[in-house]
Amino acid sequence: MTANKSDRVTRETAATRHVGFTVNGQYHEFRVGSGGIEISPTHTLSWTLREVLGLMGTKVSCDSGACGSCTVIMDGKAVLSCKVLTIECDGKTITTIEGLRDPKTGALDPIQQSFIDHTAFQCGYCTPGMIMTAKAFLNENPQPTEEEIKDALSGNFCRCISHYQVIRAVMSVVEKEGEHGR
């Protein structure tokens, strides 16, 4: 190990490193380290959300970035929380399934309500990830075609095959929004 590295590393760790980010409107700050309530560099965002912040709605299925179950919205984009290091979330704004309800009235998000109305789930395990993916997508593209919705959800694993009902649920939100717009 060269002297250079020691200098650099010492410089960085001497001042305790903190990571702060906002989840569902609430700011959280963690100290980096390996103690019980600290954030280890190896922690994924899905782990921190579930095990530290107690937000169990974010489901981990494959834990390898291939199924979309753990999707959350980060700075407006649907991302896989199992493939994000918590230590790299400094300054980010994150929304999880728990953050979709209207904070004042408690009303469900229209996508959530539409999933209920269309029974767009069976076992429900992949549902939070699907709703978050759809939410980020509709935020960006409020009037998509059915094909675009399918494309947006193409990274979300559902084994019960609720796909057809999910598509109807999301399309129904799109149609309703369209009516309001007119």
């Binding site: 970035g65 291939a66 979309g68 999707t71 984009k77 649907a78 991302v79 896989l80 493939k83 994000v84 993916t133 997508f137 494309d151 947006a152 959800l153 193409s154 990274g155």
Partner: peptide, 8 residues
């Protein structure tokens, strides 16, 4: 890959 992966 998938939309989420392309986002990242």
């Amino acid at each position: 890959a998938t939309p989420q992966i392309r986002n990242m």
